[in-house]
Amino acid sequence: MTTITVSPLEEKVSQLEPVASPARPSTRSDNTQYGLKFVGAAVSNMVASAVSNPLDIIKVRQQLRTQTPGARANAFWSVGLQMARTEGISSLMGGFTASMLREIVYSGLRLGSYEYFKDKIYTASNGALTKEGLGLKVVAASIAAAIGSALANPADLVKVRMQAYYPEGRPYRNTPHAFASIWREGGLRSLYRGVDATTVRGIVLSTSQICSYDQVKQVLKRRGILEEGIGLHLTASLFAGLVCSITSNPVDVVKVRLMTDKNRQLNGVLDCIKKIIVNEGPLAFFKGFGMCWGRLGTHTIVSFIAFERIRLLFGIDPM
């Protein structure tokens, strides 16, 4: 008796038209796609940082204040109005150039190389990790964020220094002058002040932001709640913005304190944490949370929507 095996129609179509397969929608090489993803991630996050810079600088000012948590003088509207009155409206765009440089390196790598590491780790795991699983996403995001945040520390430090308040007047004329001044303080070591807190913060923020966005998109699409498009991107990014704000604010407070500690009064991350708890209480780790959420929420929405649109423009699959 002869047995005839009939392949499903979908399988035949996928064999005849591999370019139309969801796994391979583009004729571009993998390396070209990874390069374009880096460019898309950098550009989209630069746009998001430009939009959210005023919120970012208010958040930094709040985190540097040491009065009782919840005091009205530390409310975001109070800080913003005081800056506008005493330093001018332009002060809300402090550290803008350094912020753009930071995004090219930091976000270009943490978001742009996320899928590169995701693909490579998936292949190396020989099926032990699934592409839909949260474990693979966390590992990939952690590696990408660690590299990006560590390399971007000098630009991050300059940005924070230029956004801080100096009663005696601004010590830096512009971004190049800030880099040169900090270099004179102690060379490369000064530019990498707080790199441990920066890296930890980058990992915490990126894993919570990128992984939650990726996971929420996946769940909403799988359950047929939303289809690929602006509505899905907005919903996933709203959720991701809240999650990463909650997880990253405490580390961000420590990072900002260390980066602005020019007189070396803090002896590293643990000493900074100890002094904040003793002098200000545990709630101090959530100073500036309103602005952190406002800034990160805005940044997350703008960056992911822009990233998805740029990918579409480049002919690359949605994230």
Rank of each mutant, 00 (worst) to 15 (best):
L134T: 14
A71T: 03
G112I: 02
K118M: 09
L109K: 07
E115Y: 13
V105I: 15
D119F: 09
L111D: 04
L92P: 04
A98T: 10
K120G: 08
L81V: 10
G112D: 10
S99A: 15
R65F: 00
L129K: 01
L136H: 11
T97P: 02
K118L: 07
S107R: 14
P69V: 00
T130A: 00
L136G: 05
S91E: 08
Y114T: 13
G127D: 06
T123Q: 12
Q63C: 01
T66N: 00
K120T: 12
M83Y: 06
L101N: 13
A75H: 04
T130W: 00
K131T: 08
Q63K: 02
Y114P: 07
V105N: 01
G133Y: 07
A84W: 12
N126A: 14
G108M: 12
A84Y: 15
G133P: 01
S125K: 01
L101G: 15
A73H: 03
G133A: 05
G112L: 05
A84M: 15
G133K: 03
R72Y: 00
L92R: 06
K137D: 06
E132R: 08
A75M: 04
D119E: 14
K131H: 11
M93A: 13
G80T: 05
E132G: 08
P69D: 01
A84D: 13
L134V: 14
A71E: 00
M100T: 10
S99K: 09
G80Q: 07
E115P: 02
G127I: 05
F76L: 09
S99M: 10
A71K: 01
S99Y: 10
G133R: 01
A73V: 08
M93K: 05
L64N: 02
A75G: 07
T86N: 15
L136T: 10
L81S: 12
T97W: 06
L129P: 00
A124D: 08
E103A: 13
A75L: 09
W77A: 07
G112T: 09
I104N: 07
I121F: 00
A75Y: 08
Q82N: 15
M83T: 11
T86L: 11
E87F: 10
F96G: 08
L109P: 03
T130S: 06
I104W: 09
Q67F: 03
L101V: 09
I89E: 13
N126Y: 07
L92I: 08
